[in-house]
């Protein structure tokens, strides 16, 4: 969190984390495509020729002033491929909240679990308590045939009532619900910490 009292700006960082090809970049692309251009910056993607994220994607959203303070949200994705663990940790630095994007396919459950565990490990290395970091979970690709039951995914990734959303990010379904929940959680946490 960074507040500039002169400019009356509140800056918050939200990171989309998850295993390879779970749809993190797609979330940002949809947010970029469907948000009023006046409220969002450019979508920057550092990717390979095969369209795989190599470092991160970045998108800034800027809302109108609320009680004299202008909220700005810096959205990042991490690269999902196993190879880029170091990059994921770097991007996670200074995050005010995370969105964990899980691939709902049964065959990807193990990848989701490993990614989720690694995220907690990175948080600990960055001296963050994973229980304290605001986190919402998105079960993506619900339109595919072999998806795991939501109840099962919730047990793994959203126990104790953590907010979770079903999505088909490619069609934009669930993308904004997830983002809104993440923003609300982050702001609630900031209020609590002050």
């Amino acid at each position: 969190m960074f507040i500039n009292w002169k400019l009356r700006e509140l800056n918050l960082k939200i990171v989309y984390y998850g295993p390879a090809l779970s749809g993190k970049t797609t979330n940002l692309q949809i947010i970029h495509a469907k948000t009023n251009p006046k409220l969002r910056g450019e979508l920057v993607s550092l990717k390979t020729r095969e369209d795989r994220t190599i470092f991160f994607d970045f998108l800034q959203l800027e809302l109108g002033s609320i009680k004299g303070l202008k909220p700005k949200f810096n959205l990042y994705t991490v690269p999902g491929q196993v190879l880029y663990a170091a990059s994921r940790k770097l991007v996670l630095q200074g995050a005010d909240g995370v969105v964990f994007v899980a691939d709902s396919q049964m065959s990807r459950l193990a990848d989701n679990i490993h990614s989720f565990k690694a995220m907690h490990q990175h948080m600990k290395e960055l001296q963050l308590d994973p229980r304290e970091v605001p986190c919402v979970v998105q079960f993506n690709k619900r339109d595919l045939p072999d998806v795991a039951p939501v109840a099962l995914l919730q047990r793994y990734f959203a126990p104790n009532g953590r907010p979770s959303f079903e999505s088909v990010a490619t069609d934009g379904v669930g993308v904004f619900d997830t983002l809104k929940a993440a923003i609300n959680q982050v702001v609630a946490q900031v209020q609590q910490k002050l």
Binding site: W5, D96, F116, Q127
Partner: peptide, 21 residues
Amino acid sequence: FSAAPNDFMPAGELTPSFVLT
């Protein structure tokens, strides 16, 4: 495998946040 490991340091600042006057 959910978010409940026990070996954390006491909860400090969530992020290195700061405020400019």
